[in-house]
Amino acid sequence: MKRHYVQLIAIISGILLIVLSVAGHQDIVQVPVAAVLSIVLAPVFLISVGLLFSAEVIDGDIPFMGY
């Protein structure tokens, strides 16, 4: 998987998680809705951040499924 795809996924999911958190606290979005969306987005965010961490070592493509 190309590094910039992983970066893009990490940034988008990270921003969405922060927005959901703020929206949940401000009652813009109902807490259960924010919680369910966070459950879906948290693994995506953490896995992409994790892959970015390890990408510093291997420099370039990130080995992922189908590599």
Binding site: G50, F53, S54, E56, V57, P63, Y67
Partner: peptide, 8 residues
């Protein structure tokens, strides 16, 4: 572990 080289 997050900083280690990873593959499947």
């Amino acid at each position: 572990f997050l900083g280690k080289e990873s593959w499947i």
